[in-house]
Every structure is written in C-alpha cells, then in structure tokens.
Design a protein around this nucleic acid. Structure first.
Length: 193
DNA sequence: CGGTCGATGATT
DNA sequence: ATCATCGACCGC
C-alpha cells in the first residue's frame, strides 16, 4: 500500500472543530509487540472545552481531565459505563480542554472485531487506560495520512449520548464521511417523555 | 463516605 | 426497553 506520513504535532495544535473534520480519512495505527492494527477514521465528534457542557472538561481540571487540558497531540482515554473505553485526540492550544472523540474506523488491517462505535473502536485496536495521556507523536500509537482518502463529503450532525448538555446537545459537532458503511448508527430517538 | 450516572454496546 | 459494571464526581 501507499506510504504514509505520521501526523506532526502542529497538525493537532488547532481548534478542535477544524481538527475534527481534518481527522476524517486519516489512519489510526497501533503497533503492538505481535501485531499492528490500522483503521481509517470515518466518524468523530468535537468537544469544545469547559464551556461545552457535553465535554468532560466542563467539570474543570481534575485527575480525569488532566490529559484533555494538556498539550495537543496526546490521547485522552476514559472508561464509560464501567466497561467501554473511548479515545480522544487532544486538540490545541494547550490548556484549552478541547478534544476530538474518535467514533468509528473503517478497517484497514485485519482487526479482531467491529470498529463502528467508540467502545468497539478501542476494543478492536487494543486501546485501554494504559494509553491515557500517551503522546500520539510516538512510535506505537499514532495517526497518519496516506493520501488515499481525499474526495469525500462530510456530514455534520448532533453528538451522540449527550442529551444532558442542554443547548450544547443539539449543536452539530459530530462529523462523518457521507455514505461510509462503517459509520456508527445513531440510536433511535428514544425520547418520549 | 455514599448515591448517582454516564461521550456504550449487547441482548430481550 | 433493559442491563452490564465501575470510577469519577457531587453532595452531605
């Protein structure tokens, strides 16, 4: 396959909104001792910092959000519902508390399970809390551009699972590649009342 | 220190 | 529609 270039620090040191759409089509690569897992990012969500009530950083600087307030180009990994891991890419500038959640990948290398959905994505690539705060300009977990995905349409939509966030719940901060089969399916509006 | 609740996913 | 499963966070 074509050669690819590891994304440099400067790529991440930008507003999360811009970074989110630019991450679509890029490769996520996790090299382990016995295997290398690769997927193409097809769905993301932007979290815009402390004023964004859907963002974890709206709770301020805590042990959990430390990485998200840290320098761009690092991984913010957390555990939800006591069982699923979710991976974010910290955006810039440092201290902004902004990040982009990786929600779905299109398989590139052989992967052990589905990659549509933030929890499955981490399971497939073997990403855990051990990667909390890891520098993505590293040799085993990083993102890259292979130039293969350049011509696609980006769709925006409200973020998933953030109904508690008031007006922030409706903002179109979820982005995905139009028509891509690996994009996670939005849950049905289970919202009677 | 205890109660609550998730940036989800699998199952009924 | 429900449940699994646990740590972070909030309130007392």
């Amino acid at each position: 396959m074509a050669s690819f270039t590891k994304l440099p620090r400067a790529f991440y040191d930008r507003n999360a909104l811009i970074l989110a759409t630019d991450l679509l089509g890029k490769l996520l690569i996790h090299q382990q001792a016995d295997s290398t897992h690769i997927g193409r990012i097809v769905e993301v969500e932007a979290y815009l910092g402390p004023q964004d009530l859907a963002a974890h950083t709206s709770k301020g600087l805590t042990a959990r959000t430390r990485a998200m307030f840290g320098p761009p180009g690092h991984a913010y990994v957390y555990l939800v519902y006591g069982m699923h891991h979710c991976m974010n890419v910290v955006a810039g500038p440092e201290g902004s508390g902004t990040a982009v959640l990786l929600r779905a990948l299109e398989p590139v290398s052989d992967l052990p399970c589905a990659t549509n959905g933030p929890g499955r994505l981490c399971k497939a690539l073997g990403i855990t809390l051990a990667h909390y705060g890891q520098d993505l300009c590293s040799d085993d977990l990083y993102l890259a551009d292979d130039g293969a995905a350049t011509d696609f349409e980006i769709v925006s939509a409200p973020r998933i699972g953030v109904d508690y966030a008031g007006k922030w719940a409706d903002k179109p901060l979820r982005f995905y590649i139009a028509g891509n089969r690996w994009v996670s399916k939005a849950p049905k509006a289970a919202k009677p009342r």
